[in-house]
C-alpha cells in the first residue's frame, strides 16, 4: 500500500490538477473578500471579526470545493482507464482494490490539505484586518471546523466518485453531479433535513451549525452511511473487474 501511495503522489506531482485546485482555492478567498466589501447598514461585512473565515468556509463548501474534491478523486481513478494505463498496472500486477483504496486515501489527504491551505489564507487575512480581536481559542475553533469540514466533505462526495467510476463516462461527470449535490445543500441547509443531507451534515459534524448530541449523531451516521455506500459500490466494481 505504501508503494501505491508513493506512486500516486508522484503521479499527482506531474499533473496540473493540483495547481488548478490551489488556483480555485485562492479565487474563492479573493471572491469572498470582494463580497466582504458589500456595505450593510453602513458597515462592510469584512469589518466584522471572523466574518471572512466563516463566509469562506461556508460559501466555498457549498459552491466550489465539493466539485473540486469529487473531480480530483474521479480524475485520479478514471485517468488509468482513459489513458489506457490500467492494463499495464494489472500486468505488474497491482491489485485494483488496493489501487483504488490508495487513490481514495490520497483524495482524502488532498481534501484536508486544501482546507488547511484555505484556513491558513483566511487566518492571515483575518489577522491582518483584526489581529486584536482574535484569540487563541477562536483560532483553534476555526482550525477544527476547517479540518473536519475537509474530511467530512470528502466522505460526503465519495459516493459521487464511486458512481462516476462505475459509469466510466469521464471524470468531469463527477464535477456536475457534485455541484448539483452541493447546490441542493443550499436549500436543505435551511430546513430540518440539514442534519441528514450529507453535505450539510458535514457542516454539522464540523461544528459550523449548532447541534444537539442527537443531531450530531444523526449527521455522523449520515456521513458514515455515505462512506459505507461508496466502499460497497467500489468493492462491487472492483470485484467485477478482478474477474476479468
Amino acid at each position: 500500500m505504501r508503494t501505491l501511495l508513493w506512486a500516486e503522489r508522484l503521479k499527482l506531482k506531474r499533473s496540473k490538477i493540483l495547481w488548478i485546485a490551489v488556483f480555485s482555492a485562492i479565487m474563492v478567498t479573493f471572491i469572498v473578500f470582494m463580497q466582504g466589501q458589500f456595505q450593510y447598514y453602513g458597515h462592510r461585512y469584512i469589518d466584522k471579526a471572523t466574518w471572512y473565515m466563516t463566509a469562506t468556509q461556508s460559501l466555498g463548501s457549498l459552491y466550489v470545493f465539493p466539485a473540486i474534491i469529487a473531480l480530483m478523486g474521479s480524475y485520479m481513478i478514471c485517468r488509468e482507464d482513459q489513458d489506457d494505463t490500467m492494463k499495464s498496472l494489472v500486468l505488474v500486477p497491482v491489485s485494483i482494490s488496493n489501487l483504488i483504496r490508495a487513490k481514495l486515501i490520497i483524495t482524502s489527504i488532498f481534501s484536508v490539505v486544501l482546507y488547511t491551505f484555505l484556513f491558513v489564507v483566511t487566518l492571515t487575512v483575518e489577522a491582518a484586518l483584526h489581529i486584536s480581536l482574535l484569540d487563541f481559542g477562536m483560532v483553534l475553533g476555526f482550525a477544527k471546523i476547517y479540518l473536519l469540514e475537509g474530511i467530512c466533505l470528502f466522505v460526503a462526495v465519495s459516493p459521487v466518485i464511486a458512481v462516476v467510476y462505475g459509469l466510466k463516462k469521464g471524470y468531469w461527470l463527477a464535477l456536475i453531479f457534485a455541484e448539483m449535490y452541493s447546490f441542493l445543500g443550499l436549500f436543505i441547509g435551511q430546513s430540518t433535513m440539514r442534519f441528514i443531507y450529507p453535505i450539510t451534515a458535514a457542516f454539522c459534524v464540523a461544528g459550523y451549525y449548532e447541534t444537539t448530541t442527537v443531531q450530531f449523531v444523526i449527521s455522523l451516521c449520515s456521513l458514515l452511511a455515505c462512506g459505507g455506500l461508496s466502499l460497497l459500490l467500489l468493492h462491487g466494481l472492483n470485484r467485477k473487474r478482478d474477474i476479468y
Binding site: K16, I17, I20, A21, F23, S24, M27, V28, I31, V32, M34, Q35, Q37, F38, L59, Y63, V64, A67, I68, L71, Y75, W172, L175, E179
Partner: peptide, 23 residues
Amino acid sequence: KGYILPVCVTIVYTFLGFILLMV
C-alpha cells in the same frame, strides 16, 4: 487541450459572477 482547467474556470467564474452581483 484538456478540460480540467475550463471546468474549474466555469465554477470559479460562475461563483465570482454571483458574488460580485452584490458588490
